[in-house]
Simulated scan of single mutants.
Amino acid sequence: MIINLTKPSIDAKELQAVERVFKSGWLVRGKETNAFEQEVAAFTGAKHAIATNGCTMGLYLVVKQMNLKPDDEVIVPSLTWSATASIVIQAGAIPVFADVKKDDWCLDPEDVKRKITSKTKLVIPVHYSGRVARGFENFPIPVLYDSAHRIEKDCFDGTTACMSFYAVKNMTTVRGGVILTNDDEAAAWYRMACHGGIGKDTLNRYMGSDDKSAASFYYEVEVPSWNFDMTDVEAAIGREQLKKVTGLNQKREAIVKQYNKAFGLNIKGNHMYPILVENRNEFLVNMKAAGIQCSIHYLPLHLMKGYKEYYKESLPVTESIGEHCLSLPLYPDLKQEEIDFIIEHAKKYATSIKA
C-alpha cells in the first residue's frame, strides 16, 4: 500500500468539463476563464479575480506593478515556498526575512515592525497551511497576502491576495492561480500584463465587435509584458472544483480532527498537517518504508544557498521549526483505514509528536 502525501479530488465532472472545452475548439483564455474569474470573485467576496497560470506569477505581477526600485525592500517569511521571496528578487527589489510565530507558524507582525525601514515598501504574509496570518490589519506598510494554502467562502478581506490552484492545493486547475483585488486600476493592469501587455484578450481580438467597424480587430501593446494567462481547459476544471471546495475543506478538517485527537494536539488549518518530530530523519525513512508519503514544509529559505546574500540575522522560531517539521498525508479522499494506518505508524516511529 502506498498512501500519497496529497491527491487531487477529481471525478467525472472535471473530465466532462475538459471534454466540453476540447469540443468547443477554443482552448486558451476565453469564455471559460472569464466565467471562472467571475465565480471566484463571487465565492471569495473580491471585486476582481484575475486568473493566472500560477500563484507565483500572480504574486510577481502585484509586486511588479508597484515599480519598486533596486534598493526597495519587501518583508517576507522564511518558512514558506521559495516563490514568496523569489518574486521579490525577480521584480527588482530586496527580500527581507522575518520570523514566524510559535503558535501558528505565520509571519510575526511584531518582528516585521522591527524590520521596517524607510526602504520597506511591502510585506507578504503567508496563510501557512490555511491558517489566517493575523495582525496585519491597518498595518503601517502595504500588505499582499500569499494565500496559496487558503481558499474559503468569503475569505477576501479587501487586501490584495494571490491564490494557488496547483495540483496539490485544496482545489486545483492542475496548474494555475488567481489575483484577488478591489482595486479597479490595478486589476486592469494585472489582466493586461497577463496577456502580453495587450489591452484585449485573444478571444476579443479574433471575434471583433458586433458593429461593422474593423477597429476592434486592432490592438495596442501598452507595456512589454508576459504570457501568464490561464487556459480555458484549466478554468473549466476550476469551475467544477470551486463547486466542491467547501465540501473538500470540510473533509480535510475532519481528518485534521482525527489526527489531533490521536496525537493530543490542536493543530489548525486544512491544507497540510504539519508536526514537529524530534527524530525527523529516522521518521521519514521509516514512514517511507511503510508506504506513507511525508514531506517537509518548509526548510528555511534564509539558510538556502540561493538566498545567502539576503541572510541578515538568525530567525530562531523559523530555524527551530525548520529542524523538526514534516507533514503527514492530508487530502479529502483518504480512507479511514489509511488514516488509522498513518496514525499507528506515526506513533510507532516518532519519539514525540508536537505542534
Rank of each mutant, 00 (worst) to 15 (best):
M1W: 08
I2K: 15
I3S: 00
T6E: 11
T6I: 12
S9H: 13
L15S: 07
L15N: 07
V18N: 10
F22R: 11
K23W: 07
K23E: 14
W26H: 08
N34H: 14
F36L: 15
A41P: 07
T44M: 10
T44W: 08
G45E: 10
A51K: 00
P70L: 02
E73I: 01
V74T: 06
V74C: 06
I75F: 01
A85G: 07
V88T: 03
A98F: 03
K101E: 14
K102R: 15
D103S: 12
W105D: 04
D108N: 11
K113L: 06
R114I: 06
T117P: 03
V123P: 02
P125G: 03
P125M: 06
R131I: 10
E137M: 01
Y145K: 00
H149I: 07
C155E: 13
G158Y: 07
T160P: 04
S164Q: 07
K169T: 14
N170G: 07
T173D: 06
R175F: 10
N182E: 09
H195C: 12
K200Y: 04
K200E: 00
T202D: 13
L203F: 11
L203A: 12
G208I: 03
K212T: 15
S213F: 10
A215L: 14
Y219D: 10
E220N: 12
V221D: 11
E222G: 09
V223S: 09
S225R: 00
W226Q: 04
D229W: 02
D229L: 09
R239K: 15
Q241W: 00
V245P: 03
V245E: 09
K251P: 05
A254F: 09
K257I: 01
N260C: 11
N260S: 08
K261Y: 06
I267P: 01
G269S: 02
R280W: 03
N281V: 00
S295E: 08
H297A: 12
M304Q: 11
G306L: 10
G306D: 14
E309M: 04
Y310W: 04
Y310H: 05
L315E: 02
T318E: 04
L330F: 05
Q336Y: 09
E337H: 14
E338I: 02
I343V: 13
E344T: 08
H345Y: 15
A346H: 09
A350Y: 06
I353S: 02
K354Y: 00
